Computed example of a mutant assay.
Amino acid sequence: MERTIKRSLSFGDLTLKITDVGEDLHLLLTGGEKPHLGCTVLAIPRPSLTGSKKTGVTSSVLNMTGHKDEAICRYMAEEMARRENKVTVCTGGFHVDNITKKQIDEVLLAVKDMI
């Protein structure tokens, strides 16, 4: 099954495609002026290492040199892995030339809402 979530920002759009891959999940996040594959994060749910009942996550990251998509992809992969208790891969990239701090904050709020 595949689900698509779209968010319009004041300066562009974000698209998140969530695909079931057997018992696992694949997230593809694209948007901005130059959508690309800037980062891939693999998040694996596991029991907490502190003994709490909260699900922990172990993540591995592949990042394109010079790209800053890790914060978004890591957040999305880890949140979905933790919440759904499924191995989750998030791939994606969002780019806007000369992005401002206010615009970055807008992207982060949209990503949190989408996930």
Rank of each mutant, 00 (worst) to 15 (best):
R74E: 11
G31E: 01
G56Q: 01
R83F: 02
M114A: 08
P47R: 13
T4D: 05
H67W: 10
M76T: 02
G51W: 12
G93L: 09
K112L: 08
D24L: 01
L16W: 02
A110D: 04
G51F: 12
L16G: 01
C39P: 07
G93D: 05
M114L: 12
T65C: 09
H95Q: 05
K54C: 09
L109V: 00
H95F: 15
L27A: 07
L25F: 10
C39H: 06
L16C: 07
V111W: 07
G93E: 05
D24M: 05
G56V: 03
A77R: 02
G31H: 04
G32H: 07
K112R: 14
G66P: 00
I72Y: 12
V21Q: 10
I44P: 00
I18P: 13
L49A: 09
R82I: 02
S52A: 10
S52L: 07
A110Y: 05
M114H: 07
L108I: 03
L62K: 10
E2A: 04
Y75D: 00
K6D: 11
T55G: 03
H67F: 10
I99Y: 13
P35Q: 03
L27S: 01
T65Q: 09
K102G: 00
T4C: 12
K112V: 01
L37E: 07
G31K: 05
I5Y: 14
M114K: 04
E79Y: 15
G66W: 12
S60R: 08
V21H: 09
V111Y: 07
R83K: 14
D20S: 12
D69T: 02
T50F: 15
L16E: 03
H36I: 04
T58M: 11
D113L: 11
M76E: 08
G66F: 13
K6Q: 13
C73F: 13
L25H: 01
G56E: 04
R46Y: 05
H26G: 00
G38W: 07
D97Y: 09
L49D: 08
K6F: 06
L109G: 10
A110R: 01
G32K: 03
R74P: 07
R74H: 14
T4F: 08
K17R: 11
S60A: 15
C90M: 08
G51L: 08
T55A: 14
I104K: 04
D105E: 14
K34M: 06
I104V: 14
D13S: 12
M1V: 04
A77N: 03
T55Q: 13
E23I: 00
K112A: 14
N63G: 08
K101W: 15
G93S: 03
R83G: 00
I115H: 08
C73I: 01
F94A: 06
L14W: 08
T19D: 14
R7V: 11
Y75A: 02
E2D: 06
T65P: 13
N98Y: 08
E70F: 10
T65R: 11
N98M: 11
